[in-house]
Amino acid sequence: MRIYTKCSNYASDTCPCVLAESGHCIVCSMCRGEDFCDCSDTSGFCVMQELYNNGGKARDQHHMMKCTVTYETVFDDTIKLIRLNIPDGEIRSFTQLGSFVFIRVLENTFYDVPISVLYEEIDLDSIELMIQLQGIKTKCFKNLKKGDTVFLRGPYLNGIQGLKALSSLHNSKSLVICRGIGLFPSLYPISQMIKNNNDVKIYLDQGTFSKTLLRAAKDLYELDIEEISIMDPGGRISSQMYAIIDDAIKQDVKLIHFGTSDHVMKQLIDHVEEKSGRNVALSCINNSHMCCGEGICGACTRNINSQKIVHLCKEQMDVYEYGKILI
């Protein structure tokens, strides 16, 4: 079967985007310049019609917002939680599953870093982000204080792969496996699943976190987390982890969500595929390296079987297929 992707931006406030305007739409064959409509995986919203109605131009795109830091705290010297005040009227668009933003402290746009939205408080016009101070972009946040200004662009919507499976899961059982910082992009999916009356079992490997941080995370978000070691001392996936997954499949878990590094995720997805024959739905966090988020720069592209280039900043894939292209 050929690999289909969907656009997470499809039918959003910014669709049609510059890709449609320039003849590179992910969804619409006619916007790509083909003669006939080959629309297969969409409904309700014709990108071509919307582009036509908008005079052949893209809708108003994401623009840079200046936001004020209203709260900040640092855990373990490496993880920083910041709360931002969003300018008037913009907050409603952050409330979708998979939302992430590009944020930077410096003027230079090279420093834009993609961070998942943990939580938003519509009444207070604020969002929360958890940043691991690790590389050149994120370390700029170290000295950020309450009242400082940051530059923010978003929201973008492809922070999670498997959005449809996640949002359509109701009254079922699900399993969440996270490691380290991967917990935080998974918080929104977890809360969505709980909201949809699912029985969510969460396993967390503390990774490089200290026990203090783990406790803080649990208390902060009121999570019932079971600790586990995903890796064994030899750096391979532990037998305990495999046993938990196998057990979950036997107990008719409908969805498994991964919030781990790509290296771990790839092995876990392969294992689920082997054991369940793709009968369990999957979702996972999107760890792709991104720069523009618009499908333009190419930083997040992957090549599938030399046949198709996917832009992981925008495109949703079947997670089993996604596992195959992870490096």
Partner: peptide
């Protein structure tokens, strides 16, 4: 018949 893209390009829209 259709879909919408064809109705737009070769007709008068949906």
């Amino acid at each position: 018949s259709g879909p919408m893209g064809n109705c737009l390009k070769y007709g008068h829209g949906c």
